[in-house]
Amino acid sequence: MQTVLDGIYVLTRKDMSTHRAIPFTVPAGARRMRISVSYDPKYNFDEEYGLALIEKSMKEQIGELIMTKGEMRACLPIDNHLSFSLDSPLGAVGTAHRGNNSQEFEISETDANGGFYPTPITAGEWTFTVSVTCIVTDEIKVSLRIEVGE
């Protein structure tokens, strides 16, 4: 496999509800792609902060508290959530939306996993997009490696 992208990307609270597009180039002759992506931290273990944020958000969104302190505590630790999308020169290749902070995807013309669609590994400009669904820590470090091969 040939590595076509290997990078670390830092997201901060300002990136909440944004899409970070990461372009990369696929050479001619590739037939399959492997994407390894992970991010850290997943959780914010500060209980006091977590409880206060849940309570404040609940009042703002629902207009009242609909959970007891014990029920809120059961929701801890609060966590970061990122979604990942892929676009080839031919168009959208799908989205991976799940809570795991370490995921690996394999894509080819006949198979794909994790929310992506089978697609030819066409030579040209591709884009991997990190969508920041939720960030509850000061920053998130995203490690991304994309490899292609025959």
Binding site: G50, L53, I54, S57, M58, Q61, I62, I66, C75, I78, H81, T133, C134, V136
Partner: peptide, 13 residues
């Protein structure tokens, strides 16, 4: 539409 969202289920609200 009115389910609790951030920080428990961001986007759900």
């Amino acid at each position: 539409p009115l389910r609790m969202g951030f920080p428990l289920c961001s986007g759900c609200h």
